[in-house]
Amino acid sequence: MGDVAAVFRMDLGTFDLLLPASDFCGLAVLPGSGDIPARGDFKGRKYELLLLDPALEGLFGLEPCTAGSEAVAFLAAGRDESPRAFVSRRAFEIGAVPLRDFRLPPRGIKASLARRGLMAFRFATGQRFQILLDPGALASGLRGEKGAGP
């Protein structure tokens, strides 16, 4: 009873995107406001940088994120041989969500959404719709995205 999941919450207008905090081992602010490099060094490790914003814009039909705002790298916690980080310029906040609030997608669309990283939903207070994103599942789609390549 009372189990909660720590999440990074991004307000995407009509809904929120939730990234499970436990999928990341840290955050890093990228210096400058120019193009995002393909790789970055954080905490003594080389990370492949995957651009989250274009993927979200394509998936949800969002307006492009304001250029020039500070980019943050979410460092993936996986034990991959090639560490990766998800980079976004979108504002986020850290919060906690009761696990019992999450709902899995209906069976008929579950697999299709999971392939795109959409794992679960939450209908928050006031009917605010929240989508739990699995950045690992999204990663395969992100690899090779324009701007993220070497």
């Binding site: 009509t14 949800f60 669309i109 299709s112 795109r116 959409l118 939903f121 009917q127 719709f129």
Partner: peptide
């Protein structure tokens, strides 16, 4: 309310 979904 209908909550829109992507990729459907």
């Amino acid at each position: 309310e209908i909550f829109p979904l992507p990729a459907c």
